[in-house]
Amino acid sequence: MTQIILDLQEVVKDYDKKRAVDKVSFQLPKGAIFGLLGPNGAGKTSLIRIITSITRADAGVVLFNGEPLQEKHSERMGYMPEERGLYKKMKIGDHLLYLAQLKGLSYKEAKTELTYWMEKFEIMDWWPKKIEELSKGMQQKIQFIVTILHKPDLIILDEPFSGLDPINANLIKDEILNLNKNGATLIFSTHRMEQVEEICEEIVLINNGANVLQGKVKDIKNSYKENLFNVDFSTPTQVVLPEEYALKQINDFKIQVKLGENQSSNALLQHLLNQNLNISGFNEILPSLNEIFIRRVGQSNSF
């Protein structure tokens, strides 16, 4: 059985008049890359703040490694908030050492770790620079190092790629995957679905403070598929199929077929092969997370 690193049960958080988190429950297996999705204002940040002990839940249970959330657990977590922030006047080296020590590292450990990361990112010469001297993208890198310097078991990244150029975004992405390989569990909070699809194995979708959808990305996609198949041709082709197939000619080179309950993709392919057409591609169209997201959120919002 896989170990559960984070277990949320019916977590509730109320602000003034609004319920920001409404009985959210999910379990996070150790070593997973987990996507926390939702439109702006869905309660993602509120939920993360509860997990990182920044605020306390009004009701519900949060278990970290099977124990109720305590102060000492914050040392095992690394959190990169959406709104990045650092002390502008502080020197980068001092700043990172300070934050690492607040996470429970000794000065010596912090220095070793920091040297490792700064060498890895080839930014050792930034050590004596002040934060305010850096560009926004560079600050982003520093913020990432802050998050992972103390080797946390659980890393929570809120919109980690916003403001990064593609090269640096890739650099960070590789590091994230690397950390995961070394045993860290990751929570990705974002509303950018294409990133989630690329990285995450599991997701939970939150809207209006409640979770509306959760599970493995593959399972979710499968459960939302419409049995829609795509066929490409290398020469212009007008396809004729038996009545029972719902055929849609997209253009001279492409058709889409929606299969009914008793129809198999093999049978469809057989029909096409029998006609001796120049088939160059055949694949099932799976809904993107984006579509599922829009469908679910649109659905629940219309109620």
Binding site: S53, G85, L86
Partner: peptide, 8 residues
């Protein structure tokens, strides 16, 4: 910065 601080 406060959010980073308060998470520690």
């Amino acid at each position: 910065i406060v959010e980073v601080m308060i998470s520690s």
